[in-house]
Design a binder for these strands. Structure first.
Lengths: 374, 374
DNA sequence: CTGAAAGCGCTTACAG
DNA sequence: CTGAAAGCGCTTACAG
């Protein structure tokens, strides 16, 4: 592979001059520029980014450590991250932790060794010493989606509490009283926050949330299946299962189907994180949608702010409830006309009845994707 | 960040010695080793991979250029690739082309500039000069899934012809005669091969395949929607739509649903590439499954063979039909008992009736995933 | 077993 | 505007 020396020789100038034209340095004569460009062309020269990085101490690369690539939510997030990074002149290297702290640590280490300019992470756990040290040591870092308490790093995430409250209101309105949740790992903020929001919303409606109705999952399908099986084995199984992410909802569906049960007649199902397939499942699944694209973009902007010495901002975006049919009767707007009197629902005394959840656009199966052809 | 010099100073040895212990070179005294290791510990030293790469001319990194990260098929492929690469001591950098040749080229260029040791690509088109030159210029390269004719590079892919033949047999057996296909881009091998296999299977059953029944898609959801709308606008719409990938099937479903039509009563649907959600769609979708995990693993092995000077092997894996309910009556084995005489099906004269497609395991929603905790 | 030194391919003051 | 030279952080013959 041709090096800058070869180009210099071919063009009859010094390597310094070649470097200058390659980097658009102003003080280069038109003549020199032309000759260098010609030489580059002739030799098919491409600058060695490794050498450049060593010299300039920057790689123009962002590391992104996500919890699970097979989770469409993270896949969309990764796509948005790459998109925004590219727009700002950075590449991104993705490390997939598969929800395993050891793998997460492996990727953080690898990324750090490669001297990425900054790290975007959606932590699987409380963070290894390596990651915590990096954060404290001044490695530009931003948390996306999940974060770690006590680490002073900007956080870009969704706040699902309001949407979860809307969900509980929706379920309550449908007459459901025994609601169960499949939680994510307690080691993650999203794992804890979603149960917490659910617990509070339940309390607001005066509904009990027994321990048996809190399944412990790990955000992956298999755990959703297991938790659901346990729910179904209960003497008094829940009327609704709320899965804290889309993969656990998939597992729940597997478990429900394996017993020959039907959704929502035998048991209702809702999920955190909306994905295009939820429109076409049997039945369509009520879900809480995040603005994944915006999240990814904002995270990159924050990280690049860190890197380039500006002060980054944490960002919290709202999530929203998308009502479909997996929890019972179709939402009001989907009925052709009011079919007689509805079962009267006492709104819980102290609580204001939440506004009706917004109507999903039926023709737009990618609510959270941002496919701008930038 | 501490450098090797700092470690040398701390340990009271030369940088050469530090380097030797870091690289497990045999000729280092036990004493020196201990002191170096201690110094590494004290300083929290981590070798600079950039400098090492510049010096050794290898990055221990593989580039993977895939057509679309949002496509679960490629996402699974990427996961398998990373898994195998890690097992062999390599990292992988993913470039997402989004089915756009310009983006593909951008990533190939970036990856090459970073001096990755080898390139795994699933080409979106016939290949840019840059990619073709790299292949000819001796950059270790392997094609996965899709390939480019005339380029002497190992290819690791599935051959779907037999499964497509099985699919047509299945549809024929169900009484369908007007079958349409949503093809992938003609610039891709999978785009061409799947229509071609379909065409041949149709011919074997004496079925016509009019041009109006060949929709042109680009492997993304939106194109599946558009193609399906055109089919439905026909005076004589097809009885079956076969989408050449799972995203176009999603689009097809959107279009069908938007018209208030039902699958399979009004129109049947089948897809290439099986994904976990196909079990839970309404109705469950008949699909052709690839061994995505194996594909990814084999591709990495071939590429690393190239890189490390062994002779790589091309690999072709079979795909298999997974019958579900989206094309009509449930498969035989799903019926409780034979319900009276079935509509008599004349097997096409010259053609041997293909064996009954295999039964999908209903409890295994991840047929193509390989989640070994290696 | 150990160290001094060269060199990987760049960029960038510095001097002219 | 241009070039010689230093140096980024490593590895690796080479000599001892």
């Amino acid at each position: 592979m041709a090096s800058i020396k070869d180009v210099a020789a071919e063009a009859g100038v010094s390597v310094a001059t070649v470097s200058r034209v390659l980097n658009d340095h102003p003080s280069v004569s038109a003549d020199a520029r032309t000759r260098v460009l010609a030489a580059v062309e002739v030799l098919g020269y491409r600058p060695n980014a490794v050498a450049r990085s060593l010299r300039t101490d920057q790689t123009r690369t962002l590391g992104l450590v996500i919890s699970d690539v097979l989770n469409p939510y993270f896949t969309q997030l990764a796509r948005a991250v790459e998109e925004q990074a590219r727009a700002l002149g950075y590449s991104v290297i993705i490390g997939n932790a598969d929800e395993r702290p050891d793998l997460q640590d492996h990727h953080v280490r690898t990324l750090l060794d490669r001297r990425i300019d900054g790290l975007l992470v959606s932590p699987t756990d409380g963070g290894s010493p390596l990651m915590l040290d990096a954060a404290r040591g001044g490695t530009p870092m931003v948390f996306v989606d999940r974060w770690i308490e006590g680490v002073v790093v900007p956080v870009v995430r969704s706040d699902g509490s309001a949407a979860i409250h809307d969900l509980v209101a929706h379920l309550y309105g449908l007459g459901h009283r025994r609601l169960a949740i499949i939680a994510g790992p307690a080691a993650t903020t999203t794992g804890r926050e979603r149960v917490e929001a659910f617990r509070q919303a339940m309390a607001a409606y005066g509904l009990p949330l027994p321990d048996a109705y809190i399944g412990q999952g790990d955000f992956q399908a298999e755990s959703g299946r297991r938790a659901t099986e346990r729910f179904l084995d209960l003497n008094e199984p829940p009327e609704v299962v709320f899965a804290a992410d889309n993969l656990m909802a998939l597992g729940a569906l597997d478990a429900i189907r394996a017993r020959g049960l039907r959704v929502p007649d035998d048991i209702a199902l809702a999920a955190f994180d909306d994905i295009p397939w939820f429109v076409h499942t049997d039945p369509p699944i009520t879900a809480i949608a995040q603005s994944t694209g915006e999240l990814g973009h904002a995270a990159v902007r924050a990280l690049v702010d860190c890197i380039e010495g500006r002060s980054p901002k944490s960002v919290t975006l709202p999530a929203r409830l998308v009502v479909r049919r997996s929890c019972g009767e179709p939402a009001l707007h989907e009925l052709p006309a009011p079919l007689g009197p509805r079962a009267p629902q006492e709104p819980p005394a102290p609580q204001e009845q939440p506004a009706l959840p917004e109507q999903p656009a039926p023709m737009e199966p990618f609510p959270a994707m941002n496919r701008s052809q930038s």
